[in-house]
């Protein structure tokens, strides 16, 4: 486990990084998320990728101090994140932190998440809500699904993964550039990309983070989507195991 970063070290490191926040219909939350991230990483470039929200998400994010990338059509959470990674690549960023625009990922956990990346101990750090910090609660069906995919991800990566669906991650240049390629799915980049990253030779680590339930915005786990999600993830993991993508 990497040492916690000092405020000075964090401020220094924040100059070389990009924080990617995919957002869809987050007009109510995006200002606070952007402002809190900027509080913790005062010099980092905060990028909000607006996935064609019909509301004022993009304008509010700009007001709050974020660079906004506006997708001309709604692409999905994975493609929105990847747009942010591509932007980071253009800036030559040394690291990327991704968190959701709905405020469920607490920015005060960013220093802990970033520590193993800056220390060079891992290429990809996954913020886990199930490692003792906070008291995240989910519905039974969702909890079972999370368990199954956590078990699959743990088996495929040969290390304990407790929260593969977490969209709160930090990565170094090698990892986010790997995710700029076709390996990164347009929707639901969860257990499958973690397995792909591991198979590509990237080092994964899980870090305890704070998460709260999403208050507004749209959860992806509603209606028939859980069934599609399980199908998509199972097939995606299966074909990922058949592939041999390497990270540069």
């Amino acid at each position: 486990m990497a040492e916690p970063l000092s405020a000075q070290a964090l401020a220094e490191a924040s100059r070389q990084g990009v924080v990617v926040i995919p957002a869809y219909r987050e007009a109510a939350n995006i200002r606070q998320v952007v402002e809190e991230v900027r509080h913790w990483l005062p010099h980092a470039t905060v990028v909000v990728v607006d996935d064609r929200s019909p509301d004022a998400t993009a304008a509010i994010a700009r007001e709050a101090g974020a660079v906004v990338l506006s997708l001309p059509i709604n692409l999905g959470d994975g493609a929105a994140r990847q747009t942010g990674f591509k932007y980071a690549d253009r800036l030559g960023a040394q690291w990327v932190v991704q968190l959701d625009g709905d405020g469920q990922h607490r920015p005060e956990s960013i220093p802990a998440l970033l520590a193993p990346i800056l220390a060079g101990e891992a290429d990809l750090a996954i913020g886990s809500r199930f490692l003792g910090v906070g008291d995240y609660k989910a519905q039974l069906g969702r909890r079972i699904g999370m368990r199954i995919f956590a078990a699959l991800a743990s088996w495929a990566t040969g290390q304990r993964i407790t929260d593969p669906t977490s969209g709160f991650r930090a990565m170094n240049r090698r990892a986010y550039r790997f995710f700029c390629g076709t390996v990164y799915p347009q929707q639901y980049p969860d257990a499958d990309v973690l397995i792909a990253a591991h198979r590509a030779g990237l080092r994964l680590v899980e870090v305890p983070v704070l998460m709260c339930q999403s208050t507004t915005g749209q959860t992806i786990h509603a209606g028939l989507r859980p069934i599609y999600y399980v199908y998509k993830m199972m097939l995606s993991i299966f074909v990922t195991m058949l592939r041999a993508d390497r990270a540069e």
Partner: peptide
């Protein structure tokens, strides 16, 4: 997807204020 991303990347909207 690639096209939409390229369009978004070609017009990064800078923040309105710098704090």
């Amino acid at each position: 997807k690639e096209l939409a991303q390229a369009i978004a990347l070609s017009h990064p909207q800078r923040p309105e204020q710098q704090g």
